[in-house]
Design a protein around this nucleic acid. Structure first.
Length: 492
RNA sequence: GGCCCAAUCGAAUAGUGGUUAGUUCGGCGGGCUCUCAAUCCGCAAGCCGGGGUUCAAUUCCCCGUUGGGCCA
């Protein structure tokens, strides 16, 4: 059996979205599982919408996920080039071959002419398909049109009959050829259309298995016909389900963000993202197990465990899964992630990333790890770690800080804490519990107002851990400030 | 509009011609606890509808419905 060769072929017209990432993932897993080759090809024939930045973002996203390709941009390979824009001569060559063999033909109809005839046909209550007006053009007629300055497209002549292919997930899928149009394979500017370039490339790159989204099912009969016309062997096809948003429509900005880089920038871990994506549409074959390393994914991956129906992207589950990975990650790695996010959000300047700040970040993630779903939460909800100018939750102030008797308690706590030289968890705990005893109240009576005073929130990490991380100076300052808030309230 | 694909708890999925239809996330309740988490224990929640085939259908077939896709 020949070596498995699969490919992922994105168009660089934007970021890599989750659906594309999952398609890449399945291709990659399939290749690794079968010790085959994973090819990356950039389908940049749409000159207007394709950008170099987009290529970079897509490559970065794949690399971040650890979906490394064996052939393609940056790494090369013997079937290159891997950018379609550098393969135009190949498409031209094969298109001309089809024309010479009478399997494709030049068409000079203008868009306006086509539209007129389409409207007329529709008005007559019939469904429109290209009417093959140019199919039987004589050389003379063609010459005339050329001389009139018309630039032809090349259309593929759909043969009669029907086209059937085996889908690895769905079995036999069949189309009537008459439903297919004599579609354009080369535009008048010499740029191939998607189906044609795709077939030429997949054939020339010796792709054995085409694993792609099921939105391509209806392209497949056209492609199968092209393989036959070009005399290429057909690859195996597997159309995997799409990923939809919560409302079961195509994943888009409305559903949060569909881009891989967004999740990277929010502080999701690549292993978590990969794991979650793998679990969409794929049954691992194991109950009670959701967490899979990339090696485990490869070892278990099989296309016949892939479902046939669309999957809904569930942020809750991704968050849960990312939390699992976050808790497994080292404080050092999370701290460096946190630093990047702080810099990107303008909370910290790059030159302030000192070793001591790094140590501080490690302490922060150490006490926050258990309650994080993604690292950027620390920027969104944990301002109090990085600034004195953090918001106070109104409900916490009203319900906890302004409770009767809190002033005396805070003042007593302040005095007591001033005497604690070393802000370590055991010493802080001892101090607060002793002070509670002395005042004849439960420790909680001190703990809750203190938390609000130093963090502005009524929920958060354990108080003693929090005080220890913030350090004596900031803690005392914040308690004094809270006391002033209380005074202002009672006087005003 | 034409064609194609799909359908099990809210979500991801397992599974079967005869099962108390399993698991994970989420939800709810409880334990632990300074709060929130984390963690542990428990609970609720599903076979899209209608016809067949069959002793028996969630499972096989057909139709419909709904959702999605491609083309226009």
């Amino acid at each position: 059996m020949s070596k498995v060769r699969v490919r992922f072929a994105p168009s660089p017209t934007g970021f890599l979205h989750l659906g594309g990432a999952r398609t890449a993932l399945f291709n990659w897993a399939f290749a690794r599982k079968h010790e085959g080759v994973f090819v990356l090809r950039i389908e940049d024939t749409d000159v207007v919408r394709s950008t170099e930045e987009s290529v970079d973002v897509i490559l970065e996203s794949l690399e971040w996920l650890g979906l490394f390709w064996d052939e393609g941009p940056k790494v090369g390979g013997e079937y290159g080039p891997y950018f379609q824009s550098e393969r135009l001569h190949l498409y031209r060559q094969y298109a001309e071959k089809l024309v010479q063999e009478g399997l494709a033909y030049f068409c000079y109809c203008t868009p306006q002419e086509l539209e007129e005839r389409r409207q007329a046909t529709l008005a007559a209550g019939k469904s429109w398909r290209y009417d093959r007006k140019c199919y039987l053009l004589t050389p003379r007629e063609r010459e005339k049109l050329e001389n009139a300055g018309r630039k032809p497209v090349i259309r593929f002549a759909i043969p009669p009959g029907h086209t059937t292919f085996q889908d690895m997930l769905r079995g036999e899928v069949s189309f009537e050829n008459q439903e297919l149009d004599d579609f354009v394979i080369m535009k008048s500017d010499g740029i191939p259309t998607y189906n044609f370039a795709c077939v030429v490339d997949d054939a020339l790159m010796q792709i054995t298995h085409v694993i792609r989204g099921d939105d391509h099912i209806s392209n497949t009969p056209r492609q199968v016909l092209l393989y036959k016309a070009l005399g290429f062997p057909c690859p195996q096809f597997a159309h995997i389900p799409m990923i939809l948003g919560k409302d079961r429509t195509r994943l888009s900005k409305r559903h949060g963000s569909p881009s891989v880089t967004y999740y990277r920038d929010q502080g999701y871990l690549p292993e978590a993202m990969l794991n979650y994506l793998a679990r969409l549409s794929w049954a691992t074959g194991e109950e009670e197990k959701e967490i899979f390393t990339r090696e485990e994914i490869i070892a278990r991956f099989s296309l016949d465990q892939v479902t046939k129906h669309a999957a809904v992207f569930d942020l809750d589950k991704l968050n849960w899964m990312n939390g699992v990975y976050l808790r497994q990650a080292s404080n050092a790695s999370l701290a460096s992630l946190l630093e990047e996010i702080l810099v990107r959000n303008g909370k910290v300047r790059r030159e302030d990333l000192t070793p001591s700040f790094r140590a501080y970040c490690e302490q922060v993630v150490a006490i926050m790890k258990d309650r994080l779903r993604y690292v950027a939460q620390l920027v969104e909800e944990g301002e109090y770690f990085f600034s004195e100018d953090f918001p106070f939750d109104e409900e916490a102030v009203r319900g906890v800080l302004f409770e009767e008797g809190t002033g005396e308690i805070l003042r007593a706590s302040l005095v007591r804490l001033q005497k604690v030289d070393d802000f370590t968890v055991p010493l802080l705990e001892e101090a607060i519990r002793e002070e509670a005893n002395r005042l004849g109240v439960k420790a909680a009576r001190l703990i809750h107002p203190l938390r609000v005073a130093v963090s502005g929130k009524r929920v958060g990490p354990g108080l003693f851990e929090l005080l220890a991380v913030l350090g004596k100076g900031r803690v005392l300052f914040r308690i004094e400030r809270a006391l002033r808030m209380l005074e202002e309230r009672s006087s005003g």
